[in-house]
Design a protein around this nucleic acid. Structure first.
Length: 448
DNA sequence: AGCACA
């Protein structure tokens, strides 16, 4: 026919649809602007912005076909064209019946993160390491792990979206610090999106799933030994029932480990309530009491197997005590109740730890070299630069802060000063200064 | 000013 244009599909041939196609939109038109435009005619249930090569097209979908018809009809006879930011917008029925995939679940922030651990050794990353990593941002309620085609994945549940977001922002694309992983493990990179979940269902404490909000949750049958007491961790490692009281034994104690040293070391993870030291089996052991199990768990995970002093001296071996509340009869050089302020004859609990140190024995001038945890030398507010993770290689944080006690690892990063701990050292690096923070601090860049 | 990509 003579009336057939060169672009017949642009004539009035589109059948009605709940979805309208908009073009000639201003640059980077927002969803809000689209909703504003469509709202007078009905309920906008979905949108899609920045469509097309020029990203100046969009779709809006109404709840009801009649609403779409109302909008088209109105502007077909209106003297005023549809406008966004003063720019005329042309609209017509879309040739699709619905908008697909505008908001993927991964786009909607939530309190649960979907974490994909990439790397050849990804599946060797234990749930405990994940817990430690994510606990730096807030209380981790639950973790489940599973293997899918995408690889080894975990769902990590926080209290709220804000906490989850801070963890996601800080950790997405980063690698788990190598010092948190078993030796010989290759890099394990985290890819993080939001999950659509809001509350994970964890039936058992097992090597695949944990519910940190419910210590009484039954242990998975597969993880219980004959006594019914012992949890089996990943790779059959035994785990004691968690407790707020840790039992630390000190191996290879070449140098005196004092109450104050222990206090400082363990205070990096949260307030230490009580410490009791005693001799056992020819060595020194100590019970360290935190107010809650979670803090103790984090401290144990961070400190287990590490040495207080450079050179493999005073290696800590930590297990959970059966105690929940220590009875401190008297405050002396071997036991102390820090919850009773007036009876603690100490000066800020971190006396001359440097002065106590064997300065000549070490040969090298370095006793308090870098932290074995190489924690986050990042300053809050300064994004980390290396994608290789936070491990060794990240520039050290300037040691300007006095040592701080009672840093709670559950505090959001940036809300507390750098914590202090004596240099926990296993590899020679950094200066001879007391190193801060045995905790990984994955700052989100948020300063309060 | 002209129909997206999980």
């Amino acid at each position: 026919m003579a009336s057939v244009s060169s672009q017949p599909q642009f004539r009035y041939t589109q059948p009605p649809s709940k979805v309208l196609h908009l073009r000639n939109l201003p640059w980077e038109c927002t969803e809000e602007e689209l909703i504003e435009l469509g709202k007078p005619f009905g309920k906008v249930v979905n949108t899609k912005c920045n469509v097309g090569a020029n990203r100046n097209q969009a779709f809006i979908e109404f709840a009801d076909l009649n609403q779409a018809i109302a909008m088209i009809s109105y502007y077909a006879s209106s003297s005023e064209p549809a406008q966004v930011r003063g720019k005329t917008v042309y609209l017509q029925y879309s040739n699709r019946q619905e908008i697909v995939n505008n908001k993927t679940t991964a786009d909607v922030a939530g309190n649960v993160l979907l974490v994909t651990i990439e790397g050849a050794d990804a599946r060797l990353v234990s749930i405990d390491v994940l817990h430690l990593v994510f606990s730096a941002f807030g209380f981790v309620h639950k973790i489940t792990t599973f293997e899918k085609t995408a690889g080894f994945q975990a769902l990590v549940q926080f209290s709220d979206t804000e906490t989850a977001s801070s963890a996601k922002n800080a950790l997405d694309g980063r690698s788990i610090p190598s010092y948190l992983l078993p030796e010989h493990l290759g890099p394990c990179t985290l890819r993080i999106t939001y999950s659509a979940h809001t509350d994970l269902s964890v039936k058992f404490q097992s090597h695949r799933s944990r519910d940190y909000t419910n210590p009484y949750l039954p242990v998975a049958p597969s993880a219980i030994d004959g006594s019914g007491q012992v949890i089996m961790g990943l790779d059959g490692k035994k785990l004691e029932p968690e407790s707020n009281v840790l039992l630390a034994s000190i191996e290879n104690m070449q140098y005196a480990v004092t109450l104050d040293v222990l206090h400082m070391v363990f205070s990096a993870f949260g307030p230490v309530q009580k410490i009791a030291m005693f001799d056992k089996n020819g060595g020194v052991q100590a019970l360290i009491q935190y107010p809650d199990v979670q803090t103790a768990v984090v401290a144990k995970e961070a400190l287990e197997g590490h040495c207080i002093y450079d050179g493999g001296f005073c290696k800590l071996h930590i297990s959970y005590s059966r105690h929940t509340d220590l009875s401190i009869k008297v405050n002396n050089d071997r036991s102390r109740d820090y919850t009773i302020p007036n009876t603690t004859p100490m000066v800020n609990s971190q006396p001359s730890i440097l002065g106590q140190q064997p300065t000549s024995v070490m040969g090298s001038a370095v006793q308090y070299s870098g932290a074995s945890f190489t924690p986050s030398q990042e300053q809050p507010g300064i994004p980390q630069q290396t994608s290789a993770g936070w491990g060794p290689g990240v520039p050290p944080m300037p040691q300007s802060m006095p040592m701080q006690m009672h840093n709670n690892p559950y505090m959001p990063p940036g809300t507390m000063p750098p914590q202090a701990a004596p240099g926990m050292m296993q590899s020679p690096m950094q200066s001879g200064m007391p190193q801060s923070s045995m905790l990984p601090r994955y700052g989100s860049g948020q300063m309060q």
